[in-house]
């Protein structure tokens, strides 16, 4: 069986849930199990985010974690709603391959990736906020309007508004 050890806290009106999964399934020859957990909190689930998209195990209010037999896995999430007891329930436990494909990107992307998986694993290419000029403010100067912070139009070379 899989033993769950859950702790919850609610600082600042947000419920934080930490889950420890102890894989004690007695299954000779099975290296690992894919354990699917569902939040039991009645309300929104806020999974951890990587590169702006939900972390790999998450799919809505459920998450799948592969834990080697005899080992311990972990999971955490948040919710704006009050905690439930227990905060998660196990939906399924199935045998899974513990072996990797020997490539970090391949392992992270998975066998059937989505565009969000690609974004999370490879990284968001968007320029940082500080690199982007603030919204334009028209300033009258020497009789001509100048947009403070406006990016130049590199095609025509014309930076006037």
């Amino acid at each position: 069986m899989v033993e769950l050890d859950c702790t919850t806290a609610r600082p600042g009106g947000v419920t934080l849930v930490a889950v420890r999964l102890d894989n004690r399934v007695d299954a000779p020859g099975v290296d690992a199990h894919r354990i699917r957990l569902v939040s039991a909190i009645d309300g929104a689930t806020w999974p951890p985010r990587v590169q702006g998209v939900p972390a790999a195990p998450w799919d809505g209010d459920a998450a799948e974690v592969v834990v080697p037999t005899g080992r311990v896995g972990s999971l955490g999430f948040a919710s704006p709603e009050p905690p439930a007891d227990p905060p998660v329930t196990i939906e399924s436990v199935e045998p899974a391959a513990a072996s990797s494909r020997g490539d970090a990107v391949a392992d992270d992307v998975g066998d059937d990736p989505t565009a969000d998986d690609v974004l999370r694993v490879l990284g968001d290419p968007s320029p940082p906020r500080d690199a982007v000029a603030p919204p334009s403010v028209s300033v009258e100067s020497s009789g001509s309007a100048v947009e403070a912070g406006a990016e130049p139009d590199v095609i025509s070379g014309d930076s006037s508004p």
């Binding site: 690609v118 974004l119 968007s126 690199a131 000029a133 990016e151 590199v154």
Partner: peptide, 13 residues
């Protein structure tokens, strides 16, 4: 587009 603001506003997915 050629602007950083445009690149930042774009959803790559």
């Amino acid at each position: 587009g050629r602007t950083l603001a445009g690149a930042r506003a774009a959803d790559p997915t």
